[in-house]
Amino acid sequence: MRITELFDKGQFVVTAEVGPPKGIDASHLVDEAKTYLSGITAVNVTDNQSSVMRMGSLPACVALKNAGLTPILQLTCRDRNRIALQSELLGAAMLGIDNILCLTGDHTKMGDHPQAKPVFDLDSVSLLHTVCQLEKGVDLGGNALLGEAPKFAKGAVVSPCSESVDAQLAKMERKVMAGAEYFQTQAVYEPEKFIEFMEKAKQFGKPVQLGIVIPKSAGMAKFMNNNVAGIHIPQEMIDELAADKEKAKAGITGVEIAARIIKECKPYCQGVHIMALGWESKVPEILKLAGI
């Protein structure tokens, strides 16, 4: 099932994100997803997230699909040139993976193999364009595909709370032009900024899922403020996390904050995307608290 069909029906689409293991045993990943994420629409599977080498996104997607979940294949341009990306897409289509999220990808220097060659032959925009070409039965080189053309729900990302919001909007427009059908956002902690962003993004007429990263502690919040692009956690929220350390540690504060943000933003977006970063077990609780 392509998640675009649900957006079209006006459904509030909930997705969450999981990361494949650095190893060959995906059972933990599958178990967690089955236990905590089977109630939601789809599960994103990251592609060597943060440039840290792990099991590939595609096989992990297949494992989730076999367990009855709907996976979204994340695809970055960091590690593969246009030939590899297209062949990966054809393989995904054969395996019945028809939801994808196209990203440029973090730079190689950010991860655990900083010596690696950063590819960036394509970027998120040209990758979306490439997917559209494949859907038309033609590859980027202009050669016809054999048989049936693939069809994907084509997602992309955007950072609504970035300091460079104009540049982000411009890029979003280009992604739409290149074929993006839905967007998932970077983590949002400032609903008013998000709402302002959505006012401007409305014109593109594409569904946007609010991005949520569960804040685990004041320390994590400060770290993200200093190091993670497009994220800003207001001081009150950091104080809230610092106020009761035990409560925060148990995840209660984080869940409360996440649910509150979702509630506040829900009228302005078409879904939510939760990046639990290991706290997949908290996802049902957040959704319950947020009234979804």
Partner: peptide, 8 residues
Amino acid sequence: VQLRDYSK
């Protein structure tokens, strides 16, 4: 075995 170091 020679490996290129693109961060060099």
